[in-house]
Each structure stands twice: as C-alpha cells, then as structure tokens.
C-alpha cells in the first residue's frame, strides 16, 4: 500500500494529520496522555475556556441515549489565566497543534481572551458561539448572524493567530451564520457543536440531566454533521473543521468528502480512548485504497446526485 501524505493545512496551520480531538472530550490532554502519546494527534481543541474560572453545572451532567450521549457540563474550566499558567506549558511540550476554545459573556471578553492566548502562544483560537449548556454567552451568539459577526470581529481584532468559529447546529440555516462569520473575518469554521436534546426518566418523571436539557453527541449525530459540513463548505470559502459523531476512518472520510479540511473526534474517546488514532489509521487506509497521494485530496470531493 502506498504511503499517503496525511498532513493538512487548516487556515494556514499545518498539521501532521487531519485528526484533532474535540473540545470538552479530551480535557487538556493529560488524562489520555497517560494512555498514549498525544503527539500522535494532529491537534487538540482544549476544554472550553472562559474569562474567569467556572465550576459548571450540578450533576447529573451526562445521559446515555441511542448511539449517543447528552451532556451538560456547563463549561467547567480553570479560566483562561489558569489554563495559560498551569496547562499550556505542559501541552507545549508535545508535538501537536494547540487550539484554544473560548466562550465569553460579552464580545469584549472574547477579545481579551484572544489577546492573552495569542500572546501565550497557542496555534489557533476556536471561538465557541454555540455552547448549549450555559445561559450567558455561548449559544446566544451562535444563532443571530449579527451577533456572531460581532464576536468574530472582536476575536479577529485581538488575535495574532488564526481564528476559527465553532458553529451551532441549533439554527434554521447554518450557512447564514457561516457566511456572517466569514464576512467578519473568520479564518475557518468548525462544526457541529452538540444538538440540544432531552432524556426523561419515566419512573421518577425527572429529566436525567440536572439542567433538564443538554447537548447530543456521538454516532447518532454523524449524518446531521456531514450534511451541515457539506452545506457550509458550499456556502463559504474558508476551510471547515468537521466534527460530530466521528468514530472510525470511514466517518472521517465522509466528513472530508463533504468538504472538511480536517476532522475532530470527541465522544468516541469515551468508548475507546484510542479512537482518534484508529480514525487516523482508518482514514489513511481509505486514502491509500483509493490511490491518493495526499489525504487532503478527499476534501470536498463528494459527487452529489
């Protein structure tokens, strides 16, 4: 089998392979790093950061659903300063791209965080305008095009590294938001964040999650994610980081054919900590079978009917 060049370039950031781990599923890399070298990954989208430390939502924060999970962690994190002081130096010892995921209460907070993180030397900033589990910030910026654009502008103005905006699937037309953030200067978009969902315990008549609703992820959302990546890729010129339910090489190949430049693996890590590496190897095998020299040759090559 021929050796496939697995490197990809996402908004000017070159990665040795197109597989990154999705924000919120991989912490800051320490825990999975005890199982295998995280240097094998193309990159890591770190746990979502906020301006100040957050404790997150009361438990239960997770519910299992058919081929998926609902979560409502609520952005528990040490705050941007805590990340820069305690986690970033450790991450920087590894050979992978560091993508800092941020959520703000105001456009100004996004700006301050971008300044700090750019200065601290992350490789890219992923602007979360789509967290379904917090009242302030997050999702509200992800559903109104003008607000998405305003946050993007602030982030761009205060960043010296590429800015990628993470889009919510909980909208009528995701391409409208994608075009708005592209117009505001976003260097890339990532999608999809989780889909809002709910599970009820019929015995207690209580929602399983303490917050009543949460975000759905896992294989159940893959077809939705592929469709949205396809729509967004056709609507904007900036590159797409595709995610949502990827658990194996074939899933990643679908996502790339739909238009993604790179992919993120998230929930699959809970079932199989080695999932990102299996996705990478499976993707390489598919590219090799198809006689490709570079995995990037898959991007956008879907042949629609």
């Amino acid at each position: 089998m021929r050796n496939v060049d697995m490197s990809v370039t996402l908004a000017g950031m070159t990665m040795k392979n197109p597989v990154v781990v999705a924000s919120g599923t991989f912490g800051f890399g320490r825990e999975y790093g005890a199982l295998y070298p995280i240097d094998e990954l193309g990159g890591i989208c770190v746990k979502g950061l906020t301006f100040q430390r957050r404790e997150g939502n009361p438990p239960p924060r997770i519910a299992e659903t058919p081929m998926g999970i609902l979560n409502s962690v609520g952005l528990q994190n040490p705050g941007v300063d805590g990340f820069i002081a305690d986690e970033l130096p450790e991450l920087k010892k590894h050979d992978l791209r560091i993508i800092a995921n941020i959520s703000g209460n105001t456009p100004e907070e996004y700006g301050i965080m971008c300044e700090k993180l750019s200065a601290a030397g992350v490789d890219m900033i992923e602007v979360n305008i789509s967290c379904p589990n917090v009242k302030a910030g997050g999702l509200q910026y992800g559903v109104v095009p003008e607000m998405a654009a305003e946050v993007t502008e602030q982030a761009k103005r205060h960043s010296t590294v590429p800015v990628m905006v993470k889009l919510s699937p909980n909208v009528t037309d995701i391409t409208e938001i994608a075009r708005a953030v592209e117009g505001a200067g976003a260097d890339a978009v990532s999608l999809i964040n989780t889909l809002r969902g709910m599970r009820i315990d019929v015995k207690t008549r209580r929602p399983v999650l303490h917050q009543n609703t949460g975000g759905l992820s896992g294989p159940a959302v893959l077809p939705v994610a592929v469709r949205m990546v396809w729509e967004v890729s056709n609507a904007v010129r900036i590159p797409v980081l595709g995610m949502g339910g990827i658990a194996k090489g074939e899933d990643a190949a679908q996502m790339m054919l739909a238009g993604a430049t790179a992919v993120a693996v998230g929930t699959a890590c809970f079932a199989d900590p080695f999932a990102p590496l299996r996705v990478r190897d499976g993707l390489a095998a598919i590219a090799a079978e198809q006689g490709l020299e570079r995995v990037s040759q898959l991007t956008g090559q879907v042949q629609p009917w």
Binding site: T25, E55, P58, R61, P273
Partner: peptide
C-alpha cells in the same frame, strides 16, 4: 458515585461538590 463519561478525568461530567463549593 456519580454518572461518568470518560472515567479518566477528561470530560468532567462526574462532578461531586466539595465542602469548599468547588466541583
């Protein structure tokens, strides 16, 4: 006991409130 996700400390779902208020 609490409902768990990853089981290794990465996903932060199995929160248990401490006496100092932190999860």
């Amino acid at each position: 006991e609490e409902r768990m996700g990853c089981g290794i400390g990465a996903c932060l779902v199995c929160a248990c409130k401490s006496a100092d208020g932190a999860y």
